[in-house]
Design a protein around this nucleic acid. Structure first.
Lengths: 338, 338
DNA sequence: TTGAAAGCGTTACCAG
DNA sequence: CTGGTAACGCTTTCAA
């Protein structure tokens, strides 16, 4: 492998000049630049990442801490990861993939050993133990999520509270007055994953504001979970005309169940789902949905990290506006039915 | 951040001694070792990864090149990734995540700039353009998949040919004689993703060996794709009593379709699926299936990479035995029906 | 517009 | 069993 010295000799310049040609951090005459670039190309020179990191204290790598379980939300996580990697590359950075399993120790390991310039975390919990650890790192971090105390740490996410309000006012606008929430699995609530709480809070608030009758219930995965969740909802509030579903896994079995029990969507019951667009349109009924903008959120997380690295100011809490797309699962209720 | 020199001073030894305490590459008296370790702990010393890489020409990072599209096989890809990261950590390595989109350039970039010690690639195509590039790298690589010409490169995968044979002989053993294959999407065949070809070849071979009447068809995603695939299969061979489904995405809509058209599983039609276990048991009918052992394959890929890095011998083609688990989707056909 | 040279923090070789 | 000290390959300050 040729080094910067080899290139310098071949081009008849000093190593520093080669370095400056590469970084563009100082003006170089067109002529020497050309000579240097020719030498680089001819020798197939590639700067050594470790040497660079050592000399410049920059690795051009960011850590992505992802919940690599197989249980929940797999497609969404994948979308986040894809967005983060793609965005990072567009800033000439690479991505080191860590699992959430390693916990605080993993973060400290990569940060202290200077493997990364910044960290992006997903799947934050309400009182996430990793946050105090993050504060002590010299590298900045960006959270995808919104834990309770996030002072001094940049957070990016969909505004789940607003999403719940949007869903309810859409249904209310269609005349619905009795509405059930099919929530995430109890495990998600138990972990206090921040989006579940925020959605639920927004839901209850909007329900009160709009004067609706609502019931909410977590929903275990699988056909059985859906069955029992629906039974609970129906038991606690009869005459349900609409459901808000904040649970990707539940959608398919839920639709199956409704069909099996003779409740047509949207004729007998309307649905607003919170899920990625492609999930919404891959169901037997094209679902009216509020998108989980994983791509935008991931990209924004990287952009925020980059600004932080440049020492620029950032907004420390950035919640993306939800946007509802009307499809085929919501129906106007005539006055007589109200 | 304290350096190795700070530690050396604090412990009253030379930096090289600290280094040797850390690496264990030469005997150290219990006493000095203790002093050094105390100093390390007290100062909170963490070796600088870049400096290490520079001095030792080892990064302790492996690249994982994953197909980060959102379209196909998302859960399986996630399982591979999880297994690779977990296994890598157990060898004290980290994982740099690259997308397949970057193609050959991405591999060369991380390899030439010495960011990684080895590469693991998934989603290989029959005549994958990246393979010649891999051969030129100084770092070893391990493929998850089996492209046509893989001489000199380690490959690890499920034995898809054997999986097809296993599926067919299971069905044949249950008396089935007319069997359809619901294959991956045409896009997968078009890309010549290696597992599709190998499965199909094994299927045709076993079909001939066992004297079966079989038809095969790719299957587009979604309800419509399944409908048209089934129509084709039925048209080309009537009296189908069993299906082999090598298409995760198709499973759910397929079961929906069969139910809608009054074909009960397994009473009227038997099914063997090739898919991860958790997919098989999350369907309305618990499916008899051949597992895609993503965890084992990912772990084995990392192990192979590690052996290669140690300069040890490896088997260059390692195809894992398929294992079929009987559940509720296959039925014995009585002689009268044959 | 360019060059020289001092680091950056480790490792590993050479001595003892 | 331990120490001294060249590398390792690049960036960046200081000078010119």
């Amino acid at each position: 492998m040729p080094t910067i010295n080899d290139v310098a000799k071949a081009a008849g310049v000093s190593p520093s000049t080669v370095s400056y040609v590469l970084s563009g951090r100082r003006p170089i005459s067109a002529e020497t630049r050309a000579r240097v670039q020719a030498a680089i190309a001819e020798l197939g020179f590639h700067p050594h990442a470790g040497a660079r990191a050592l000399a410049s204290s920059k690795t051009n790598v960011i850590a992505l801490v992802a919940p690599l379980r197989v249980d929940v939300n797999v497609p969404v996580i994948m979308q986040f990861a894809t967005a983060v990697v793609t965005a990072a590359r567009s800033y000439n950075h690479d991505v080191l993939l860590l699992t959430k399993d390693e916990g605080t120790a993993g973060l400290e390991r990569v940060a202290h050993s200077t493997m990364v310039d910044a960290l992006i975390l997903m799947d934050l919990e309400r009182d996430d133990l990793r946050i105090p650890a993050l504060r002590k790192l010299k590298q900045p971090s960006v959270l995808i999520g919104l834990p309770a105390d996030h002072t001094g740490i940049a957070c990016v996410d969909l505004d789940f509270g607003a999403a719940a309000r949007t869903a309810l006012s859409h249904l209310a606008g269609h005349g619905h007055r009795r509405i059930g929430l099919v929530g995430p699995s109890p495990a998600v609530y138990r972990r206090q994953t921040t989006y579940a709480d925020r959605f639920l809070a927004g839901f209850l608030e909007a329900s009160a504001d709009l004067g609706l009758r609502t019931v909410t219930h977590p929903c275990e995965p699988g056909a059985e979970g859906v069955r029992s969740c629906m039974a609970d909802l129906d038991a606690e509030l009869d005459g349900l005309t609409a459901l808000v579903v904040h649970n990707e896994e539940a959608l398919r079995p839920l639709l199956d169940l409704l069909r099996a029990t003779g409740r047509r969507v949207p004729e007998d019951i309307s649905i607003v789902a919170i899920c990625p667009r492609d999930v919404a349109i891959s169901m037997p009924v094209n679902l009216t949905s509020i998108d989980i903008p994983a791509h935008d959120v991931g990209t924004l997380a990287v952009e925020t990290a980059m600004r932080l690295l440049e020492g620029r100011r950032v907004e420390y809490t950035r919640l993306l506006e939800p946007s509802l797309v009307e499809r085929d699962s919501c129906r106007e209720i005539s006055t007589s039915h109200r």
